[in-house]
Design a protein around this nucleic acid. Structure first.
Length: 576
RNA sequence: CGGGGCGUAGCGCAGCCUGGUAGCGCACCUGCUUUGGGAGCAGGGUGUCGGAGGUUCAAAUCCUCUCGCCCCGACCA
């Protein structure tokens, strides 16, 4: 392709609107332009990358036995009402009416559509398993779109849906998609990690998020340095080395050993409400304290016990309680429940509500809690002697350095990642609510078991940039680069230079190599800068000096390594 | 939706506090020179100062309203 004919409006400076590097570079390299908040035009260069990623996805999905379909983007409300999501989905669902005042929405996802199709068309176990996928523009009216393609409102997504007769089959389908995802992201040249994820409200038995590792990632991932265990924060389990021990073998170790349970003691702590204040006032480490958080989850109110230096993970607790949200009560409400001002809540003598203790509490002895009375704390509190939790559970946030819960010698690190793909084993959630059944060998109906699998195409592109760039611009992995080579004739006045450059261009094109020919009448510096900025993997540099000797230079964008090649040889072989 | 900020030429910004002729760099157009890392000289201004209303002899500047965008938080591919 001739550069002069392409729309590649590169910018010399970074536009002020963008913050993260992928967004800034996509704008600067003339790949995208913003049309409205979270809504972008894809320019020729950007769209080529999108199509590259799409075709890798298609190849791997097809290889895994999935079939491509194409669903509408405008969806009728009735389907969404059927599953209740018309009401549940909230403002993220962009609703519209047609001329007859009928309700529609822009599709944010397509479970309803595909399940509707399947329930009509699939009758028999003989038609299963089945896996349908599509690559579609989706719309979610995000609360806060940001970071360019990373979190747009309109975005391109591949979504696949699997349908099986039984659990074994469903797991096999899931595994196939998992493997396909590994292949897809590997082929896109990404450094990524599949992590165990929370299934959230979608339900089902398991789920993985495919995270591209990048400091700008929006999600925190917990991963073990020893056994490969990785999970997102909602799911991650960690263990805490006991800060205090009763075990004789711990004498002389780093652990502070408390060989006996000391008698309960009252301590007046005037106005000391926060863990920090209390710890300072008494003169102990924060990890000697246990905080008692009074939480409302759905209809229930519970007391959650967390070690002083730890943090409650609301989502873990909510899941445990079987509801969607867990919230701290207001100070007034706390006082109503415990009879003491908030800041002085404690488990000892607490009546009327269940006590859920974090697993880390199990190992603690002689700890400090609130006294359920203004300005009172209790020292040397011990489990089962002074109070008994109704339940122990993992309800805290994992911290950097916690011990791995899956292996004996690993420690957990927290890294950041960009979620580019998500796989869910859905089970029968949608087939039940929408009545998608098949008949087995005996003519008996069963619900179809489903899975769903998404990949954010634009986000994958953004993630690739986050991982592959330098101060001069983009560095595309070869597999998703818009062009493989860019040819830079440095002196357009010189017929020899231009002639050789054009001959190389035609030679490479004939061999099926995607070539961009910078035929613009620009100075060398401009061409170099633009070539670096748009990140084409190889630059063929054609200059007067080389041409006299019959050679050109080939520069690898990523390494900046330069080698000289004979013009004739390059035209003949196409070898870079 | 809560908190913070921005809106002036295609892009990046100054001017606003303290009202008085709209400015700088880059880009762009013309000509000449230049040609291996975003060239030099000369000439050219392409603007509804986001919009509406108000105060004033006079508003980019002060006031009110409004629209758009960006950043931080709670949700998600």
């Amino acid at each position: 392709m001739y550069y002069s004919k392409l729309l590649i409006p590169t910018l010399r400076e970074y536009p002020g609107e963008a913050e993260v590097i992928s967004h800034r570079l996509m704008l600067r390299a003339g790949m995208i332009r913003r049309l409205a908040a979270g809504i972008y035009n894809y320019l020729p260069l950007g769209y080529r990358v999108i199509r590259k990623i799409e075709s890798i996805i298609r190849e791997e999905m097809d290889r895994a036995g999935a079939q491509e379909v194409f669903f509408p983007m405008v969806l009728p409300a009735e389907l969404w009402r059927e599953t209740g999501r018309w009401d549940q989905y909230g403002k993220e669902l962009l609703r519209l009416k047609d001329r007859n005042d009928r309700d529609f929405c822009l599709g944010p996802t397509h479970e309803e559509v595909v399940t509707d199709l399947i329930r009509r068309e699939v009758k028999s176990y003989r038609q299963l398993p089945l896996n349908l996928y599509q690559i579609q523009t989706k719309f979610r009216d995000e609360i806060r779109p940001r970071f360019g393609l990373m979190r747009g409102r309109e975005f391109i997504m591949k979504d696949a849906y699997s349908f099986d007769t039984d659990e074994t089959g469903a797991e096999k389908s899931y595994r196939k998609m998992y493997d396909a995802y590994m292949a897809i992201f590997r082929r896109c040249g990404l450094t990524f990690k599949p992590v165990e994820a929370d299934t959230g409200l979608i339900g089902g038995s398991f789920s993985h998020e495919f995270m591209v590792l990048a400091d700008t990632g929006e999600e925190a991932i917990v991963s073990c340095d020893s056994c490969g265990y990785a999970a997102n924060m909602e799911k991650a389990e960690g263990r805490v080395a006991a800060g205090f021990s009763l075990r004789p073998q711990d004498v002389g170790t780093d652990l502070q050993v408390c060989p006996e349970l000391l008698p309960l003691e009252k301590k007046i702590t005037p106005g000391k409400k926060s863990v920090e204040d209390v710890a300072v006032f008494i003169g102990v480490e924060e990890e000697r304290l246990v905080k008692t958080l009074i939480i409302r989850g759905g209809e229930r109110i519970v007391a959650a016990l967390i070690r002083g230096d730890h943090e409650l993970h609301e989502i873990k607790l909510a899941k445990l309680l079987g509801c969607t949200e867990a919230q701290l009560l207001s100070p007034a409400e706390v006082e109503e429940v415990t009879g003491a001002p908030s800041g002085f809540s404690g488990p000892v003598g607490l009546k009327g509500i269940p006590i859920i203790a974090d697993l880390a509490i199990k190992d603690m002895v002689n700890f400090i809690v609130g006294g359920n009375e203004r300005d009172l704390h209790l020292l040397n509190v011990n489990l089962f002697r002074d109070f008994a939790p109704d339940q122990f559970a993992d309800i805290r946030k994992v911290r950097e350095g916690d011990e791995c819960s899956r292996c004996d010698n690993g420690n957990l690190a927290i890294v950041r990642g960009i979620e580019v793909g998500h796989t869910f084993k859905l089970g029968t959630k949608y087939s039940e609510t929408m009545g998608a059944t098949y008949l087995d060998e005996h003519g008996r109906p069963h619900f179809i078991i489903m899975g769903c699998y998404g990949i954010g195409v634009g986000r994958t592109m953004a993630a690739a940039i986050e991982q592959n760039h330098d101060k001069d611009g983009l560095i595309w992995p070869s597999s998703i680069a818009p062009y493989k080579v860019i040819i830079l004739p440095l002196n357009m006045e010189s017929e020899k230079v231009y002639g050789a450059a054009e001959a190389i261009y035609k030679g490479l094109e004939e061999k099926g190599i995607e070539v961009l020919f910078d035929d613009r009448n620009e100075r060398a510096g401009v061409k170099f800068k633009d070539a670096d900025l748009i990140g084409i993997p190889y630059q063929v540099i054609v200059g007067d000096k080389g041409i006299k000797r019959g050679i050109v230079e080939i520069k690898e964008r990523a390494t900046r390594a330069v080698k000289e090649v004979e013009v004739e040889k390059l035209i003949l072989t196409g070898e870079l």
